[in-house]
Amino acid sequence: MSASDLLDRRLVVVTGKGGVGKSTVSAALAVLAARRGKRVLVAEVDARERVAPMLGGRPSGPVIRPVLPGISTVNVDPRHALEEYALMVVRVRAIYQAVFENRVVRFFLRAVPSLAETLMLGKVLHEARSEAHGRPRWDLVVVDAPATGHAVQLLGTPRALLDTVPGGPLRRDAEWMQALLSAPDRTAVALVSLPEEMPVTETAELDAQLGQGLSLPRGPVFLNAMPGAMFTTSELDGLRGLSPSAPPLGPAARAALLQGAQRERAEAQAVRLRELLGRDVVPLPLLAADRWGRRAVERIADAMDGQV
């Protein structure tokens, strides 16, 4: 799949190693899709909510809330997802309370295979396929998924349920969830990485796990925080001799050399990542941003434009 039709999917799941900028990429994808006139929901999964604050709004919590024109956010948590789902099954709140608010039942529900993950994923996927007034409720649902290991666990739950639960509503839900997740015309998993040794290694492993392991349609890999090429090799050679100089030249030369070295290492890792993946990656610029606010997100969205 080429990166350029990513935003025409109904569901884009964003994941990667911790600290690589998943929330920023999720927020930027939403901003870009909204610029193209789409109605977007960004769903975080049981997270310390980051996307809404990054876009200048207040945290949504478990209830979907608009944050910018065209963009709504939600933070799905297991308790609310269970309540919502259970009410859909039993329909009567009094029964829900009698059964599901029962302490013993709560213990029990923890042991049902990956129930919390399934319900949270189910809530998100439900949004991705729900309709209102004869058209999809959202043009695009972006899931800011948990980091690597937890994401594999989360995205693997429908399949785990299909292996363990022989019947009942949970199984039927696992079936449509698995179908939606593995449909390449509707869903894509986008990975975020950093141009560093271990994140690159991990991204390649994750890509294989999601593709061969879970048969999920893979979207683009975003290589976040790529330093720009500010100096030529011969300029850097010249600056090397100047780095011991007195201020202001010495410190400036050292900053330039550090930038050049960082750029060189990052470029080598970008090459490595492309080789490991066997396909191209989408570089996103390293920003000298003091705070990760809406301005920074807009700039990342600018950089994505034309690439996704």
Binding site: V99, A111, V112, T164, V165, P166, G167, G168, P169
Partner: peptide
Amino acid sequence: GFVAKTLSRFTGSDVLSDVGDF
């Protein structure tokens, strides 16, 4: 029975007996 019946509508009854067994 009330609790169990509602739960088994939710998960299927085989899961409940697996839990009991476990």
